[in-house]
Design a protein around this nucleic acid. Structure first.
Length: 269
DNA sequence: ATGTTGACCTGTAAGC
DNA sequence: TGCTTACAGGTCAACA
């Protein structure tokens, strides 16, 4: 479900219900997702959630003794429901809040994570992350300089969280189409001018996706249950064999780095 | 160091 | 109608 826009939409959706609320109870229904859920998460009980931040695709629920870190993996979903709402299949974790609502993590594939970061520490999972794409931390110079000498495909390069965070398979395809760059091209073989345009395209496509409420493919829904509408704006992702919106040639579909990729062989070089 | 591959899991859709 | 297979928004560990 989630790339950066979907995580950000989730953050925006849950914040009004969760921020400033005291946690009445922490419930772990399934003890191991991608990693074991640490017992430290019970430190949240009786403490207020002071703010909800996002770093890469991680959500950080800040509190007195530290931050609860949530990652949605491939299939994770956050919902805010009345506490008495029955659990459904794959509901693994819950924060019961003082306002009678509960924040629930549902994750069929269990690639998601629930972690704990003590105040004043940076969790190991967050230590190797590249810059945030929607801030000035991501610059064309950064991508250009890091890419020198890299022989792997540029699509893999921009999906590497050590390079820049939050660019997943959908938006990597879209940003490369918007820039006219062939996703198979070696990252080190792209000019500074083209990285400038690619940087702008990454920022633009992510920002527009957030505005549209994210991309709903199979099952992503916002915290209020509404779908995201960015799917309607996808130019190439999931459109193999259909005409390129720019030139009309059939959109190519090919696996790059084990991920399905979509591009126009005429518009992207 | 860098690049590539397999692994983790379940649900869904397509193919036979 | 069934059964089998391939694939899915992410990331990490183990290789060459």
């Amino acid at each position: 479900m989630p790339e950066l826009p979907e995580v950000e939409v989730s953050r925006l959706g849950i914040t009004p219900h969760v921020e400033k609320q005291r946690v009445q109870a922490v419930r772990v229904w399934y003890p191991t997702l991608r990693w074991p859920i640490p017992d430290d998460v019970y430190l949240l009980e009786q403490q207020p959630i002071t703010a909800i931040h996002r770093r890469a695709k991680y959500l950080l629920l800040e509190s007195t003794f530290g931050a609860l870190i949530l990652h949605l993996g491939m299939s994770g979903k956050l919902r805010v429901v009345p506490t008495e709402t029955p659990r459904v299949k794959h509901d693994h974790f819950e924060l019961e809040l003082e306002n009678g609502l509960s924040l629930r993590l549902n994750d069929a594939r269990r690639f998601g994570a629930v972690l704990w970061q003590p105040t004043g520490e940076l969790h190991p999972q967050l230590q190797q992350l590249g810059p945030e794409p929607l801030t000035d931390a991501l610059t064309a110079d950064h991508l250009y300089h890091l890419s020198r000498g890299k022989t792997g495909p540029v699509k893999n390069f921009i999906m590497d969280n050590a390079v820049v965070v939050g660019v997943g398979n959908i938006y990597a395809n879209e940003a490369l189409f918007a820039t006219g760059i062939d996703p198979r091209r070696a990252a080190g073989n792209i000019s500074q001018a083209r990285y400038a345009r690619l940087t702008d395209a990454i920022k633009d496509v992510l920002a527009r996706a957030i505005e549209q409420g994210g991309t709903t493919l199979r099952d992503f829904t916002r915290a209020d249950g509404q779908p995201g509408y960015f799917r309607l704006e996808l130019a190439v992702y999931g459109r193999g064999g259909l005409p390129c919106p720019t030139c009309g040639r059939e959109i190519a579909e090919q696996r790059i780095g084990q991920r399905n990729s979509f591009f126009c062989t005429r518009c992207q070089r």
